[in-house]
Write a protein that binds this DNA or RNA. Structure first.
Lengths: 183, 183
DNA sequence: TTACACTCGATGCAAACGCATGGACTTGGC
DNA sequence: GCCAAGTCCATGCGTTTGCATCGAGTGTAA
């Protein structure tokens, strides 16, 4: 294999390992008894995007198959954390948004989670490295400097199954939970 | 929230997004029909560590609960890809290793997967950035420069449930699959 | 030797997942 | 208007996951 390939594969493997190590550490913080990290991920995404989100839109941010996400939203709706309204502009779609309860819950969890994330990251790398990491990961995720979502160039099929890690699914930070503390 | 916290949380979120985007793209490559990315992750880890691995050891690399990993290994053993031997030094433990078939299969998938990883990474970031990313992620994962595994400072409980992304679990690169091509 | 605390991996069971598919709706061409 | 193709989300179903727990083995001390 070429040096080019070696470089790329080393980077990918290290990213996977960093992801796994950090998710394990954050998952072990004992704050996910009521709401799982995957569920929080959805709450956070809905909080971040102020206007209602379509399911497919939400699915671009979450490492879950469309049916799995649909049912996860089901559960959040059943618990009164998320609203699922019909989209007046498109009879097929739904508009997902947080309820007042959902928003409060997200903020609450977000504050705690943010502390854990801050502690975990700063314990390992410097401030400069954090900034550098952010820039590179934004490129990898296809996010422009403005922070815009960025939709994948070629909308791939929905075969996931990885993750799981699906899991991907994981947890976003608190950003939306600490709005009060911002600016 | 402080600038420190903001920096750390932005970095974590961007890492999660990069992870999700790349896993989705790699999962969509249509090479995971026979062996899933999670299963490959295990095969890769066993291939990389030449000597047999304990289950708990393996579990540090894979984003899966201990029972889930135990059963995943079950399936790989049933398919003749992995051997599970009693550990002569510790009657409680098992020694996991690849069979010849398992090793061949890992190499085969690894070569294809490495190409996909190389393409995905180089399409997004420069060579320098790949090297920088690797260094930072190694720090995040707690890996020393020598590339040694590095065991977590405080062995956290086994509560995972994330990731999903679970899954977690994802796919390692081909490294062990391209030994032939290496120096 | 025995007793007790601990570690390791397997198993019962309910919850959650992915794949395949279906129904409702939209879109574009005729 | 109408029909074919495509999009969007929900549901059936088998598989996989996590949590709780268990039995077996280890290590230490009395």
């Amino acid at each position: 294999m070429t040096g080019r390939g070696r470089l790329a594969n080393d980077a990918w493997e290290s990213l996977l390992q960093a992801h796994a190590v950090l998710v394990k550490e954050l998952a072990a913080q004992g704050m996910w008894t009521d709401i799982s990290m995957r569920e929080y991920d959805v709450l956070y995404t809905l909080a971040k995007c102020r206007e209602p989100l379509r399911l497919a839109e939400l699915n671009r941010y979450v490492l879950l198959s469309q049916p799995a996400l649909s049912r996860l939203v089901d559960r959040l709706v059943a618990r009164g954390l998320v609203r699922r309204d019909a989209d007046p502009a498109d009879g097929r779609g739904v508009r997902l948004s947080l309820t007042a309860d959902g928003r409060a819950r997200q903020r609450e969890l977000g504050l705690r989670h943010a502390r854990d994330v801050t502690r975990a990251m700063h314990a390992r790398v410097s401030l400069d490295e954090l900034a550098t990491l952010t820039a590179i990961c934004h490129q990898l995720a296809g996010i422009d400097e403005a922070g815009s979502p960025a939709r994948p160039p070629n909308q791939t099929t929905n075969r996931i199954e990885a993750h799981g890690y699906a899991g991907a699914g994981d947890a976003r930070t608190q950003d939306a939970g600490a709005e009060d503390a911002r600016a």
